[in-house]
Structures are given as structure tokens and as C-alpha cells.
């Protein structure tokens, strides 16, 4: 009897609406290691997959934005817990995708876990930072509170397959937005595995939707989509970014322009506050 096992290869699919469908188009594309060796085939999403993902994100929005901030923080912390439990797998995937040393890859995964915990802690505190009791010249309470923007399309950075992804997705969802994220084109595998973590960690289906494929093909459809409320261009190539921003202007999407980001550095609140709208309420003081 042979002791050799058959290889059990993983099929990398999309993560849309809490399920793992193949691309509607049936297409896939080969993903290689940083030096160029074959790794796996990833699903190549089409514009219809993007459309389906937006529908799923829209459907999940009322439930997720209506959950208490405290609850959202707990859910995101749970994601961090599960990611921590699968550190070894993610370290291998990140290493293959980015060509890092074993130590650097493990460091990137740890930083991603820490980033999730950091944002999870902000869930029930951001309202105190962005909200205010405004002084007005009249017998009124005047209160400003922040509310999530809606469905946000995110182009994840290409160079940082896990830490970069977590750094752009976590600040969007923690405040109650739902997200359609287009994973790094060159290193999409950690993103698909992150989908597996999300699927098993109390994040309602549709809150995070992960697409893999060609950024230049999918991004214009997300940018022009009338039911998307925000667009994060972190992973948009320079020449495409301006074009996408123009397309996004049609329904006045909030756009976050790409910049030179150091994903390992302390993130600050920019990404957190960018996807919030301010609601101001006047109320008689009753005197």
C-alpha cells in the first residue's frame, strides 16, 4: 500500500453574500508566487459578480448598520480571534503572495490581527469623537451624530495582500457600512481565505464581499454603480484613479484617493471617519 496521499487542492472562489460562488462568467486566472511560480487558479470576477456583490451588500446594510456599535466591535474582535487561530496558514499564503521571509510574513499576519483588534475597539468610541452637542442661540438641544455612508466599494492595495486588505476593510465595516472589496490582483489568495474566516465569525453574510480578478475590468463598473455610496481607491493604478473618480461623481460617491501608505504604521482615524455622514438633530429643551 502506498503511503503517498493525493494532493487536496483548494478551489479559490469569491465570497459574496455569505456564500462562496464561482465567478458567474466561469473564468479564472493563474496566480503566481512573487518570483513567478504557479500557485493556484483564482476566480476572475465579471461585472455581474460585482453587481451581485453590491446587491448583497445593500441587503446586509440595514441589519449591520442597525446593530449596536458594541455588537459590531465584538464581531470584529471575533474575526481577529479566528484569524489568530489560523496564523500559520495565513503566514504561508502571505509569504507566497508577497515573497517575504517567513518572519516578515508572520509579522504581517500578526499586524493584521492587531489592526482588527484596534479597529474593533473604536466601534463604540468613534461616536464620541465625531459627534457633538452644538451650542445654538435658542432653547434647543442641537446634537450631531455620525452614521454610516452605506455600501462602499474598496479596491484593496496590491502590494500588501493581507495587512493592506484588513487595513482598508476594517475601518469601513466597523462603523456600520457594508463593503464590496476587490482583492489585490497579484495576491488574491489571502483575501479569499479571509472570506472563510469572516464566514465563520458572526459577520452577517453580505457585510463583506470579496471579489478577485482584474482591477481595471471591475473597478469602472463599481465606480459608476448608482447603488454604491463610497469608493476607496487604495489599490487603483495611477492612470485609472482619475477616471474612476470621474465615474464616481455621477451619484456623488465619497471617494478616498490613493496615497503612499505604510500599512504597517499606526493608521490614524482618516479611514474610519471618511465613511461617516453627520446627522444633526434639533430638539426643544422644554424650558
Amino acid at each position: 500500500m502506498s503511503t503517498e496521499r493525493l494532493a487536496v487542492r483548494k478551489t479559490y472562489k469569491l465570497y459574496v453574500g455569505g456564500r462562496f460562488p464561482r465567478s458567474e462568467s466561469g473564468r479564472s486566472y493563474p496566480v503566481t508566487t512573487a518570483p513567478g511560480g504557479f500557485l493556484a487558479n483564482a476566480a476572475m470576477a465579471s461585472r455581474k459578480d460585482a453587481r451581485d456583490a453590491v446587491v448583497a451588500a445593500r441587503k446586509a446594510f440595514p441589519g449591520w448598520s442597525g446593530a449596536t456599535a458594541y455588537n459590531r466591535g465584538q464581531v470584529l474582535y471575533r474575526v481577529a480571534e479566528l484569524l489568530e487561530g489560523r496564523r500559520a496558514q495565513f503566514a504561508d499564503e502571505v509569504r507566497a503572495a508577497e515573497g517575504l521571509t517567513k518572519r516578515d510574513a508572520a509579522g504581517a499576519v500578526d499586524a493584521a490581527v492587531d489592526r482588527l483588534v484596534w479597529y474593533a475597539g473604536w466601534a463604540d468610541k468613534i461616536a464620541q469623537i465625531t459627534g457633538a452637542a452644538n451650542p445654538v442661540a435658542g432653547p434647543y438641544f442641537n446634537l450631531s451624530t455620525s452614521e454610516p455612508t452605506g455600501v462602499v466599494a474598496v479596491l484593496a492595495p496590491h502590494d500588501s495582500s493581507l495587512l493592506g486588505l484588513v487595513s482598508v476593510v476594517a475601518p469601513v465595516v466597523i462603523t456600520g457600512n457594508t463593503v464590496v472589496v476587490l482583492a489585490s490582483e497579484t495576491g488574491p489568495l489571502p483575501a479569499v481565505s479571509l472570506g472563510e474566516v469572516l464566514a465563520t465569525s458572526d459577520v452577517p453574510g453580505g457585510v463583506v464581499n470579496v471579489l478577485t480578478g482584474r482591477t481595471a475590468e471591475i473597478a469602472p463598473h463599481l465606480a459608476a454603480h448608482m447603488d454604491v455610496n463610497g469608493l476607496d481607491l487604495a489599490g487603483a493604478p495611477g492612470d485609472l484613479a482619475a477616471e474612476l473618480e470621474t465615474a464616481a461623481a455621477d451619484n456623488l460617491k465619497r471617494v478616498l484617493r490613493p496615497g503612499a501608505e505604510d500599512w504597517a504604521a499606526e493608521p490614524g482615524l482618516t479611514r474610519l471617519t471618511h465613511w461617516l455622514e453627520t446627522k444633526t438633530v434639533w430638539h426643544p429643551t422644554g424650558t
Binding site: R51, V54, R58, H221, A224, H225, M226, D227, V228, D250
Partner: peptide
């Protein structure tokens, strides 16, 4: 229009 529309419209 070539753009995906949404239920807001």
C-alpha cells in the same frame, strides 16, 4: 446609460 442603477432611483 451603461451604469448599474439602484433602488434609490
Amino acid at each position: 446609460t451603461g451604469r448599474y442603477c439602484g433602488p434609490d432611483y
